[in-house]
């Protein structure tokens, strides 16, 4: 790690005052499960580390009529222990429990999950967000078994966020404190597929702070992750669904894929075909097939197309209570 100064502000305002216009000016510390490793690898070299855990109002889950808000420093463990989330947002619970380390669930926060950097081994190996050397993509020519099957470049990493797909499916909003005001971004617009190596993969400026996530209630939802290991392991493919139902009939659906693109990937074709349907095995399977139309797998990862289909199918069956 490089040296840095450390501050633990008590208010968002204080925290904002410590940030700068460059990512190297300051880094926000919540659970630390990504930032500390990034700093150990010298991939993050902030001059100041701003601990957000001392800002009490960033922590906790609150209910507001048709919405629920989750504070950015709410830990995964707090989330899975929350009765409202458990009853109304099983897709978030399933995503959180997919992080199969109690230690990470105790440390990691919801805001940190959204803002964590990609796990692409070229990026982590210091080859930049796009993994380019001498003008050529290392990923296309190299080891891309865990990389994107959607998006078509130039970014081929996959979004590491566990909650991203669920939040996009749930039509959540991300509340952001800026130096001058607050702003709200739809979760679907928070994640960005960068076109160059200098752009971040999230729509957040270096001098801004994610404060809360606001989620509308009223959907039937589920997340299914395909993970190789039961122990701590990144998903190979994820699907998150949020359904507005009339009885057993789907009025409208949102199907969002994870770990298959640089952002959570909205599978609109799958969503459209689900409208008006009742979930059963064959409907779920057809939605899976629709979801992967247009996938452009790389040299080593066409298996992820199959895994994505299965994830969509199983997420739908889970939402319908047909898969336990």
């Amino acid at each position: 790690m490089e040296q840095f100064g450390y501050a633990s502000p008590k208010t968002v305002k204080e925290a904002l005052a410590l940030l700068g216009s460059d990512w190297n000016d300051a880094a926000l510390l919540a659970g630390g499960t990504d930032l500390i490793s990034m700093m150990k690898e010298y991939l993050a070299t902030p001059k100041t580390v701003v601990n957000l855990k001392g800002i009490k109002k960033l922590h906790g889950i609150t209910e507001h009529g048709t919405e629920v808000r989750i504070g950015a420093t709410t830990t995964l463990d707090d989330l899975v222990s929350n009765a409202t989330i458990r009853s109304q947002f099983p897709s978030l619970i399933q995503a959180a429990m997919g992080v199969t380390s109690p230690q990470i669930r105790n440390m990691g926060t919801v805001g940190g999950d959204l803002c964590q950097r990609p796990r692409c081994w070229y990026f982590r190996g210091g080859m930049g967000l796009l993994g380019v050397k001498d003008g050529k993509s290392l990923i296309l020519d190299g080891e891309n078994r865990y990389h994107a099957i959607f998006g078509g470049g130039p970014a081929y990493f996959v979004s590491a966020s566990s909650f991203g797909p669920a939040l996009v499916a749930l039509d959540a909003k991300i509340l952001i404190a800026t130096p001058t005001t607050t702003r709200t971004v739809k979760a679907s617009e928070f994640f960005v597929s960068p076109k160059d190596g200098n752009t971040r993969e999230i729509a957040l400026a270096p001098n801004e702070i994610v404060t809360e996530i606001e989620i509308p209630r009223g959907t039937t939802n589920a997340t299914y992750e395909v993970r190789h290991k039961e122990g701590l392991d990144w998903p190979l493919a994820t699907a998150s669904v949020a359904l507005k139902m009339s009885g057993k009939t789907i009025n409208s659906a949102s199907v969002v894929l994870g770990h298959v693109a640089p952002t959570p990937w909205n599978a609109e074709a799958a969503a459209q075909m689900l409208a008006g349907k009742t979930i059963n095995e064959s409907v779920a399977e057809a939605a899976g097939a629709a979801a992967v139309k247009g996938a452009t797998p790389l040299s080593q990862n066409d298996y992820k197309v199959q895994l994505t289909k299965v994830a969509v199918k199983r997420a739908l069956l889970t939402a319908a209570g047909l898969l336990t």
């Binding site: 922590h59 609150t62 808000r69 222990s81 009765a83 130096p179």
Partner: peptide, 25 residues
């Protein structure tokens, strides 16, 4: 400085103590 950070708004309308309690444990 001109900015009014989000605290005020949150305090007034966005915080439910019940919910906060529940979440915070």
């Amino acid at each position: 400085s001109p900015p009014e950070p989000p605290e005020t708004e949150s305090v007034k309308s966005n915080f439910s103590r019940r919910g906060f309690l529940q979440g915070a444990g």
